[in-house]
Design a protein around this nucleic acid. Sequence first.
DNA 1: CAAGCGTATTTGTATAGACATATTACCCTC
DNA 2: GAGGGTAATATGTCTATACAAATACGCTTG
Lengths: 231, 231
Amino acid sequence: MSERNSFKVIRDEMARRIAERLWLPGALIPGEEVLAREFGAARATVNRALQELARAGLVERRRRAGTRVALYPMREARFVIPLVRQEIEARGAAYQYRLRSCEEVSPPELVRTRLGLLDDTPLLHVRCLHLADSAPYQYEDRWINLDAVPSVRDVDFTTVSPNEWLVENAPFTEAEFTFLAAAASAEEADLLQLREGSPVFVAERITWLRDKPITLVRMVHPPAHRMVTRL
Amino acid sequence: MSERNSFKVIRDEMARRIAERLWLPGALIPGEEVLAREFGAARATVNRALQELARAGLVERRRRAGTRVALYPMREARFVIPLVRQEIEARGAAYQYRLRSCEEVSPPELVRTRLGLLDDTPLLHVRCLHLADSAPYQYEDRWINLDAVPSVRDVDFTTVSPNEWLVENAPFTEAEFTFLAAAASAEEADLLQLREGSPVFVAERITWLRDKPITLVRMVHPPAHRMVTRL
DNA sequence: CAAGCGTATTTGTATAGACATATTACCCTC
DNA sequence: GAGGGTAATATGTCTATACAAATACGCTTG
């Protein structure tokens, strides 16, 4: 035993047993010591394999109670949030960027509450368009907390998109993603070359640095857009 | 030293250094040995912390080349795919289920290619509705590969939803998720009590057991639906 | 100068042993 | 039988050590 990837081998073998119903949903599986002996590995190795299965939602583990196969294997799916530019270039399309507006204004009530801001201090409101092969790909409507990122005042967003600038200059520790379908507003329809009321795919993201809100962005995609992820 | 959660402490401290730009994007960070000495921990502990950061996309690691701060911290977000019923009950709403149709038919070309089926063997086509507090919550349109799950023929889907039955009886090893916005078809609009053409949030899922396709499901939500995940 | 090869370095993983921690199961008391 | 305290047990984590694997870098050679 003691192969080099044994924890992966063990993990996959246990996943197989769960998939094949050798270990039934809800059933208690052997303890780490026993499995270690069975697989001829150290307990730490089995532990690592089991922790990965737990993270994936295949098993549930509790001290003293042991490890049991999840009743409903609510496996997790992961998706990465790339830069729009990279997303577009990865499809082999040419990336273009167009700034639409950039101004300091007091945010509407809705934006303020979502960012958890108490007063109506002006925020930087940036709206821009990302194109793939000259076709509208994403409309970005962003509010930036000047208090958290004061240096953003001096940035020229006609050449660099707020997306890229912020990724490089405004680190965050927390983020919340929301995905929804909506009807295109008149403005969105105009920019994305759709009819008003067309369904659009909207991704919203709020980021914080510790407790301080950084930015709220609404990214609107034409209905052809697909967000795909594999498990 | 040697606290019990030291790998978490170390991970968070390193995440802080990246967030605060003490370690700049693209920069090489110290090797595991050095960090281990600095934090007064074993290398294995630092390794575990770094592996988590790598998984989260904060750093990139390569043997011999060392660990560097990711240029674009494309952090991953995770979301879990629960049972519709659990999703609804978690909101404190009452769950109801209604079967609409269930028949063996040859699938349309589109379904066949998405499932990677070569011939036009009949599949089980099930359509049903999930309600939250008597309001339409999700319309489920599903194709099931009878070849992969023959026992599904004998299931009475008037009482149990295909979602739940399959989760318990048709294990899978691979899955692909797709999210998109679409305009409600006449049928969808009718079932979800919307106007035809209203934007709907669509989640599609294909699952495989090893290479064998199990099921393709299209889950349609009214526009108020939000998929939220935190990082 | 280019190409190819060897080697040092860094991360990846395994192991055994130890202790920490959470939580169940059991026993004891009332 | 109910309640509460305690011991048993499975998992969580750390340490030190060892070897494996990938690969950047320098050296040799043509």
